[in-house]
Each structure stands twice: as C-alpha cells, then as structure tokens.
Design a protein around this nucleic acid. Sequence first.
DNA 1: CCGAATGTCA
DNA 2: TGACATTCGG
Lengths: 281, 281
Amino acid sequence: MLELRLVQGSLLKKVLEAIKELVTDANFDCSSSGVSLQAMDSSHVALVALLLRYDGFEHFRCDRNRSMGMNINNVSKLLRCAANDDIITLKADDDSDTITFMFESPKQDKIADFEMKLMDIQNDHLGIPEAEYQAIVKMPSLEFARICKDLSSIGDTVVISVTKEGIKFSTRGDIGSANIVCRQNTTVDKPEDSTTIEMKEPVSLTFALRYMNSFTKATPLSSTVTISMSSDLPVVVEYKIAEMGYIRFYLAPKIEDDDEGYILEEKSFSFLLTQVWSFAR
Amino acid sequence: MLELRLVQGSLLKKVLEAIKELVTDANFDCSSSGVSLQAMDSSHVALVALLLRYDGFEHFRCDRNRSMGMNINNVSKLLRCAANDDIITLKADDDSDTITFMFESPKQDKIADFEMKLMDIQNDHLGIPEAEYQAIVKMPSLEFARICKDLSSIGDTVVISVTKEGIKFSTRGDIGSANIVCRQNTTVDKPEDSTTIEMKEPVSLTFALRYMNSFTKATPLSSTVTISMSSDLPVVVEYKIAEMGYIRFYLAPKIEDDDEGYILEEKSFSFLLTQVWSFAR
DNA sequence: CCGAATGTCA
DNA sequence: TGACATTCGG
C-alpha cells in the first residue's frame, strides 16, 4: 500500500510543470524515505533529479519500494484538474498497475479522484557522484530566469563565468553580443534577493540556452536557485522545494575543440558520466 | 415599431457569447411580453432557449409580434462593437427587413448605430413541455464549468449521477478515469457558493462533454447554474439572467443500448422530443 | 487566487 | 477564423 497526502497540492502541480517540458516518461521511485525521480531528456543531454522527502508529506505510507512509471504529460494533465488550494493524495495498492490521484477542495465539499495506468519504463538510473564544485552561486530564481530568457533572444548558447566579483552570462548571435554580470550582494533586505558566490577557482563553461530555459520552468518552486559548476562537469541548477527536497537539473557543458577552435555539440549525458565524472571520482 | 432599450448592455453581449458557439442562425421572437429565442445546434442534439422579459428592459415597445431571423455570428460581431458599459437600444420598423443596434456610451458622448439585414429562417419551434425532474441541482456556475473542462481533458462523455449525498461527474478515457463528487453544502458564506440538491429519485445520465463545455460559455451570466435531470429526458442546464429571464440549454442523453452494451450516439433532439417527451406529457 | 488579455495551434 | 493554452495584472 502506498498513500501520500500533500496538503499543499500546488507544490506537486509546480513540480510537474517544471519537468514536463524536459521529460516525457519517468519512474517515480517510492520508498519509506520519500519519492524520487531521475530522468534524462529525450536527447540525453540534460538530467532531472527530483527528491520529495517523506517528512514533507502530511501523511506518508509506503509499505514496499516501488518504481512507478508514468507518462509525465498525462500526470500533468491530471494535476491540472486540481485547484491550487486542493489537497492531493496519491494512492496505489501494492499489486496494482494503476495509481489514484485524489484532489480534495479545502472545504471538502468537492472530491475528485483520477485513476491512471502505470507504465513499464526501462530504468537507466545513473549514480550521480557527489562532486566538489569549483564555484557555487546562489541567486534569485526570477533573475536567473529573466537572464536566460533575455539572452536566448540574442544567441543559442551562454557562457557562464564565475569569478570572485560575480557571475557573468555571455552570449553572441547574429545581431550582436551580450554580457550580463551579477555581482555578489549580501547586503540586501531579504535573503532571497541576495546573490552569493562560493568560489575555489574561477570557472567558465558554455551551455545551450534552450535547456537553461527549460530548467527555469521550476522557478515557481523556489525564490532562489543554486548554480554549481566545475570544469568539464555538468552544471547543477538546483531549486529547493521548501521542507521537502529539491529539483536538480544537470546539463553537460559544450566542449570547445582545441584543434578546431569551434564548439562541439553537447556530449550525451551518459557519455559525460563515464568519460568526465570518472575522473572526478 | 419595435424599440428595446437595455441600460446594462453587457448582458446582451454575454448572451450572444453564450450561444454563438452552438447556434448559427436563429429567430428572435418579440412580443409584448419580451424577447425569446429557441434554436437547435447544427447537429440537432442540443437546444438553446432564451427568455428576456419585457420588464427587464428600461424601455420596451413591441407593437406587433415579430420573428426576426439573424445570423448569430453577425449579431455577435456587432455587439463586440459595444463597450461593456454602453446602453444598447434595438429598433426595427414594422415593415422593415432590417434591425438597428444603437450603442450609447454612459456619458452620451458617443453614439453608434449599426443596421443589419434580417433573414428568413424556417422556424422549427418546438413546444417544450414542462416536465417534472427527478433531480434538480443548483451549484456555482464556475465550479460546473471547471469540472466540465477538467473532465474533457480525460474523456469525451460524462456520466452525471445525482444521489442524496451529492452530484457525481464521471468520465473515462485513454489515460484513465475520473470521478468528481460535489456534496450538498448549504452552510457556506454566500448563497451563490452553495450546492443544493432536490431529488425525488437517483438519476444517472450520460452526455457529450463537448456540448456541456459549450453550455458553460454562459457562465458570465450567472454565478449559479441549475441542472435538472430525469431518466431519458434531456438534461436542462439553466443560467438565470438577473431580473430578466434565463438561458436554458437542453441536451439529449446518450442512450446505452441494452442489447449491445455500448453507448449510442446522441438521439437527435426532434427524435427525442417525439419519442421521449411524448410520454412525459 | 482569480479574471483578462495575449499568442499559438488547429 | 475560432478555440485553447499560457501569461500577466488586479
């Protein structure tokens, strides 16, 4: 028996809005410690990792570990049928190949339940090593989203460079080039408006803006975002989910070919894992 | 001479928005008692009945009964030229084959008039018998609209079942099934937020969601909607128009074929009228 | 959190 | 051209 009750149902709605652009099908892995999900985008360049800890739910029961495959678009459709202030409960019997989404209005005068078939999804679960990052930047998530959106109207890729002074986003396209620098500022009224930089060494990496813009769909989940970078490692873009966990996006950097001097396509993620993360371990 | 003056012109705008998706051409029947309209949708499955009583107008003059055929889309186009706070006056000479729409701004500093040709429309006016309904549910119109919209992302048809406990909307589609139950609740702050059920006998009928969603275009006309059902009778979905009348939508239920066990297409409305309403009389 | 307006897709 | 979805503003 699986039974998860989440009073703040809007959280789950936001989580699905955050990942549905990137992921088509994914396994929701449920255990006594919570719910997690790990999935690559269709081109295997970006990876999403979601964690919702058991203690973030008002009620959490998971008798046995289960990996429940779902079509993300269908889950998203169902969750759109929930109001933002609905209480959401997920239920699945141990031997069932369906899951039930239950939406209760705050006054309990409307109760909706949706039953959805589960799918078998081949699990290409990657062990993500805990890496040491040369630079970790925390900044307002809205600002980051705005920057990625703005830059993508100029170019396709962004060079993110971190120095002690700040984080710089640069792009270049047909109509010209752009640089946006955010300085470290901790002397701000609210902590969520501050930009902080923890840096061991300056880093500069290049990414496809298309993916960055997909990541920013998670903006409603958190007022801040954390960007962790090391040379040749995938960047980690993390949105904390209050009291529950996080959603992390990993994106392989575009590698500059030394001989040719131009930028190669992204390495596929699994390639990067074996080739790059191997020496990071 | 026909002359109708309506200070709250937005009402007329909303009425046309409510019916234009369903009806292409219709006769506006004017008599000393008011304006009424009855029209079927193109597939003859749904019927719209509108009543605007004479005393809801600030000025009402109708010297002789007239049935004025109009293309609903064209009327809608004209009315979009009126601001929401405009005063609307309709005028037609007795021997004229045109009607004039006049829009006055509240301060009388702008006056627009539009003349439109009337059409001859063959009148298949149906006498709608007053029926006794097994169940009458009043609920917030927004909630009803939301439910119909949500369910139509899952399936094509809805089963509406009324019991003493509440009204249940169910559907089923490729990705799964859904049930939404609204309990009777009269203990709510505002009467327009309450859901009330008058039931003589439990009823359960199946309808095409496509039409239900068209009906909910009338939501701006009233904060509540009334759903009246009896076995094998068309459902009546009614939106009251404050101080003036109503707009009612009738929809034939889909009939389950006992022999075959599957759901037939909707009966055409005229068929239903003769076959089903005949014994209701 | 809801309603309106805009932009996109069919 | 109309309907739907998404986005912005109150």
